[in-house]
């Protein structure tokens, strides 16, 4: 913007815009801050937004952290997240690359076939029956495979591959490389950002997934963190996750919110590093071929 003397209305405008942005920041952050405050609440105090640091009590965290069930669930979550990313990314790349090649016979038909599943979903029970017929119930394969490929991510990946300059692939092919080698040595090295973005999309979805584990798994020892958190929040089997059978050292609310914080923490820690890749992914997705 030209930095000349601003008119009053423009100054008001800028002021309003900035106030709005600050408002957004406050509305986003205050609830999260309050959760943290409640999680630090000692006995006999009312929760408040400004609990002074000298009154903070980490008893709720201590009760949760020393519970092996929580660690087992964390391990399960890691397994589901990383295993899921590996499987999903492999399947997506392998399907997206051929479909990005315009000259592939039958390409339109296959894309249509895949697109149709995006538009029409058979529903919960029929899918459940498939997982059951494959004998995958109560195994991680059910959760890992059922949601392995997202049509959206596949199309984003395909669009990205199409945007790569064809001349590079041509050159490699003239040098005698087959399609497999082209993918490995030409396309993939150029696709680092999109692989990261799509991988993160899958990763976040897997990390947050609570419904499929509830639906497909019956062993409590297989449950990932979000399911555990839901149980803690809704007062189901709480004692399984909290040391000592019930809250002795921390108020019930503090325990619940400490669980929320603990489970959000990994996401918060990696979020600043990965945030910009997500934005990119959305923007690539919105560009049509």
């Amino acid at each position: 913007m030209a930095k000349k003397a601003m008119s009053r209305s423009d100054r008001l405008f800028e002021w309003g815009i900035d106030a709005f942005l600050v408002g957004v920041l406050v509305v986003t952050l205050v609830p999260m801050w309050y959760v943290a405050m409640v999680s630090l609440l000692p006995f006999g105090k009312s929760p408040s937004l400004l609990l002074p640091p000298w009154e903070w009590s980490f008893a709720a965290y201590a009760q949760l952290i020393f519970q092996p069930t929580i660690w087992r669930a964390a391990l399960n979550s890691l397994l589901l997240t990383f295993g899921g990313v590996l499987i999903s990314l492999t399947l997506t790349v392998l399907a997206a690359y051929p479909l990005s090649r315009r000259e592939l016979p039958g390409r339109g038909f296959i894309v249509g076939l895949i697109l149709f599943t995006f538009l029409f979903n058979a529903g919960l029970i029929p899918t459940f029956l498939v997982v059951k017929d494959l004998g995958l119930l109560n195994t991680y394969w059910s959760v890992l495979l059922n949601g392995a490929v997202s049509v959206y991510n596949l199309l984003v990946m395909k669009t990205f591959f199409q945007s790569l300059p064809e001349s590079l692939e041509e050159a490699a092919r003239i040098d005698g490389a087959n399609d497999w080698q082209v993918l490995r040595h030409v396309v993939l090295p150029l696709s680092r950002p999109i692989l990261l973005t799509i991988g993160l999309f899958y990763g976040v979805a897997n990390w947050n997934n609570f419904f499929e584990p509830i639906l497909f798994l019956s062993d409590r020892s297989l449950m990932p963190l979000p399911v555990v958190l839901r149980d803690i929040l809704t007062g189901l089997n709480v004692a399984e996750y909290v040391e000592g059978g019930a809250a002795q050292a921390a108020p019930a609310e503090a325990l619940k919110m400490a669980a929320v914080v603990l489970i959000t923490l990994p996401m918060l820690l990696v979020y600043p590093w990965i945030q910009r890749y997500f934005t990119k992914g959305v923007l690539i997705g919105s560009v049509k071929e």
């Binding site: 957004v24 920041l25 986003t28 952050l29 609830p31 999260m32 959760v35 976040v204 990390w207 947050n208 997934n209 609570f210 979000p226 399911v227 958190l229 839901r230 929040l233 619940k256 919110m257 669980a259 929320v260 489970i263 959000t264 996401m267 918060l268 979020y271 600043p272 945030q275 997500f278 934005t279």
Partner: peptide, 17 residues
């Protein structure tokens, strides 16, 4: 940065909030 964050939180976490 901050306003994208809630998008990446599971509904279970939002329920806690």
């Amino acid at each position: 940065t901050m306003s994208y964050l809630p998008h990446f939180l599971s509904w279970v976490i939002v329920y806690g909030i």
